[in-house]
Structures are given as C-alpha cells and as structure tokens.
Design a protein around this nucleic acid. Structure first.
Lengths: 187, 187
DNA sequence: AGCGTATAGTAAAGCGTTCAACTAATGATA
DNA sequence: TATCATTAGTTGAACGCTTTACTATACGCT
C-alpha cells in the first residue's frame, strides 16, 4: 500500500470534534433515558424495532440486524427484557432452530411512556440545534459512512444493516425512533 | 413545557442514519484497533493525550478532562495501562491528594506502533470518504452539538471538555489523534 | 486554630458488551 | 440416507464502564 498519511490540521479538527461530540452525545442521551425512564438506550432501540414490526414480532436474527446488534448481544438483551416482562420469546414451528421475540403490552406501554421524554432529549441536544440544511448534510454524511462500512466486519454479522442505508431512499418510509407508527403519537 | 413533538420524516431519517453510522463506525474502529494493535480505542485515546502533554505527564483530572472521561473511568483505565507498563503514576508534592500519570517509553512505543494502522482506518472509513466540504460541515455540526452539551451532565464532571470546542478555534492548534506532535510522524 | 465544604482520587458492585465455544437444526452433496 | 458444512441461537467468562460510596487533602471563613 501507499505509505500511511497523517491527518492534516483540517481533518484533525473535524475528526476530534466528531469524536468528542458523538461520544458525549451518546453518553448524555443514554444517561437521560436511564434517569427519566430507567431504560438503557440499547434496550430502548430494541423495543422500538419490535414495536414497528408487524404484530410486534420479529425473528431474533431480524431483530439483531434491525438494531445493529450482534446476535449474542441481542440474546442477552432479550433475556433481560424478558425478565422485565417487556418481551417474550416464542419458538418457531417451521424452523425449529429459530426463535421469535414478541413485544408484550407491558413492553409497549413502557416504550410509550419513555418515548416523549427521549424524543425531547434528541431534539434538545441534536435536532433543534441544527438548521434543516445541516440536518440534511448530516444525513448524507451518515449514509456515506454507512455505505463505506458495507463489507467490513461491521456488516459481517448483520448484512441486513444495509436496510438502514436503503431506508434513506424514498419509497421505504422510515418511522420514528419512538413508536409513532404504532399509534403512540402524542401530537 | 410545550407539548412534545415527534420527529418529521426528514428529521427521522437524519437521526436514524446518524445513529447507525456513529454506532457502527465506532464499533468498527474499535475492532480494527483491537485486532491490529490489541489496544481498546478508549485506552488509545488516553495514550494520545498523554503523548501530547509536556513531558508526557498530566494530572489525573486533566487527563480525564482531555479524554472526555469520568474520573472513575480514567482511574480504572490508568490501572490497566500501568499493568501493561505503558503508564506510571507519580505522586504530587504540592498537592498530596493529587496524582500524575506519565507515559512510559514503552507506552509511547506502543502508541507509535499502533498509530499508522489506526489512522489508516479512520481515513478509510471516514475521512477519505467525505469531500473537504463535507468534512467542514461535519466539524461545524459537531462543534454545535458540543456547544449544546455544555451545561448538561456530560460536562458536569469534565468542565474542561470545553477545550474540545475551543480547540476548534484558530490559535490553539490541535494535534493529531496519533502522536504526530510527539515526533512519530511517518510522513 | 477550628470548622465546614469542596476537591482529587480510588474502590467495589452491578450492568452491558464482546468473544469464543457450544448445541441444535437445516440444507446440500454424494 | 449418510455426511459435512452452514445457519440460528444461546451460554459463560473476561472486560470495561457507571454509579455510589469512601478516604484524604486542601481551601475558606470566622
């Protein structure tokens, strides 16, 4: 390969700002969600994906892909969510290896209760701070990065994570990270 | 407060793409760094900050702030890094509560060995995929988010994390996330 | 000096993630 | 139908992070 190049000052600044912003933002969102609703953000996301699925049921693998999660991580998480009574596992009759995860009514209720405050956090810390143009720039940049991630280990375990990129295309309308589609819309 | 508002389709797309991209990107960078050099990214960052400090020494608190880390987390991390022989703790004579962390020669060597491949990863997955304009957009967006994070819990423990924002201002030249300033420049 | 508060740093428990190993069922091939 | 690779999912150990509590020192005020 060509000899390695460092980052110039411009790139360095962008990289460090990005690193710090994403790190602190994620930590803050996690903390607020935990504080306000007692749900870790990772689990919240799982509940959201389930809430958007038909009948609120998904194969474990599909759920793992949809939530950008490894199978192992999802398995542990579902165990926890099951203990909380928010999800139940169901076995699959056509493929006896398989398992479904189903969102319970309690789980849905917990999600509905947590969503407004979480959306408010996302708005306050990110969305409402950016102009419409910046938001669009951020989307394009994110999709570009996602496309580049394809073919790496990041997608090795979740080939369907591509759906995230494709969801950015018109046609497959994406739904809120907050159970809106499921009728919990507050507005 | 005003009634809570969901995200519109535009915002939703941006938010989800951003979420997926940052999550997968971080995971991938972490994985590659771990695979190529056996260093978790969080620890790598600590080594970088130390390598940039005068005499490669920093007070624990300063190091915590510089690496956007809680004191507790840093304390644990330094314990690990000490076990690896990459950092040593030194006591402070003027403030007996205080402690310094010093980067050892071995630590510096480990950092120098890890840097090229890590920078290459950052380039391949992020920097080189974006135009100069996009990179600048990303920097502005990140700095905006960082500014908004000020005053939240995220900054409660690290008031000096502001330095990250300010570093974006000309004057305090920021240095590479890779020990370049310390003379390990490969190019 | 003496007292109260703030600061520096560490320690321990609990939690979530990763990694590697493992079980079980499916599917493809001969 | 016997075999072997693949896929679905789970499990346990190791690891790092967070939270809370704690020790020790410094500072500020009277």
């Amino acid at each position: 390969m060509t000899e390695s190049r460092w980052l110039d000052e411009h790139q360095q600044r962008a990289w460090r700002s990005f690193l710090a912003a994403t790190r602190l933002l994620q930590a803050q969102l996690d903390r607020e969600l935990q504080r306000d609703s007692g749900i870790p953000h990772a689990y919240y996301e799982i509940l959201v994906r389930l809430s958007e699925a038909p009948d609120r049921v998904l194969r474990m693998s599909e759920l793992a892909d949809a939530s950008e999660s490894s199978r192992s991580r999802l398995s542990h998480a579902v165990t926890r969510l099951e203990e909380a009574g928010w999800v139940v596992r169901e076995s699959c009759s056509t493929d006896r290896r398989g398992a479904f995860a189903r969102l319970t009514d309690e789980g849905f209720a917990a999600l509905a209760a947590a969503a407004p405050s979480h959306v408010a956090s996302v708005r306050r810390l990110l969305i409402d701070r950016l102009t419409g143009e910046q938001l669009e720039q951020l989307r394009v940049i994110s999709d570009t990065v996602l496309a580049g991630l394809r073919g790496t280990d990041a997608f090795a375990h979740c080939p369907q994570a591509q759906a995230v990129c494709e969801a950015a295309e018109p046609g497959s309308v994406t739904l809120p990270e907050s159970a809106e589609s499921a009728g919990v819309t507050p507005a």
